[in-house]
């Protein structure tokens, strides 16, 4: 556990819990790394939740989708940094990975659509439509099925940081 993290934007204080960094080259060398990392981190952060097994299952399910998005960027250089912090019932995932400017624009647009009031309808359309699932759909699903809130943050060195707040502890059975 590191020091307490103060949100500079004046938001709630999230306390760091765990961070995993790997070279993106190593990460994208095997698809199963998404499963490994999401499962491992889910177990670690769920230990002191009211229902650790259920929380771990939900967390892994959501986090894996984010890791699969990072995996599909297929960059050869740079780092993948996954960090989880906590404020009360909400867990924050910060996922930093290499990104070119065009991709950054894509993520910014995708995240703004996720925040829109029609997110649920867009998600249903994507499931019922003929198109293959996209990265945008994965982000939509996090908002619709896990009540997640998402944003994109600046990151240095040709990288992007997705910040996803997951209120899993409050999700009803």
């Amino acid at each position: 556990m590191g020091p307490v993290h103060h949100d500079l934007a004046g938001g709630p204080t999230f306390e760091p819990m765990i961070q995993i960094d790997m070279e993106i080259k190593t990460f994208v060398s095997a698809w199963r790394h998404c499963d490994y990392v999401s499962t491992y981190m889910a177990r670690m952060v769920s230990q002191n939740r009211s229902d650790s097994v259920r929380h771990s299952n939900l967390f892994s399910s959501a986090f894996n989708e984010l890791l699969e998005i990072a995996f599909r960027t297929r960059h050869a250089d740079g780092e993948l940094a996954c960090r989880v912090s906590r404020h009360g019932a909400t867990d924050r995932i910060e996922l930093k990975f290499p990104c070119v400017p065009e991709e950054r624009q894509f993520y910014e647009e995708a995240v703004s659509q996720v925040a829109g009031f029609e997110a649920s309808e867009r998600y249903l359309n994507s499931v019922s439509g003929d198109l293959a699932p996209s990265r945008e759909v994965a982000l939509l699903e996090l908002a619709v099925d896990y009540n997640a809130t998402l944003r994109v943050e600046e990151a240095d060195g040709g990288a992007i940081k997705l910040v996803v707040d997951l209120p899993l502890e409050g999700l009803q059975h």
Partner: peptide, 18 residues
């Protein structure tokens, strides 16, 4: 299963489509 938290939410969307 009510035990696997995401399944009812995720698959439940299908009934809204068909």
């Amino acid at each position: 299963s009510s035990v696997v938290g995401w399944t009812s939410r995720k698959f439940g969307r299908l009934s809204g489509i068909e």
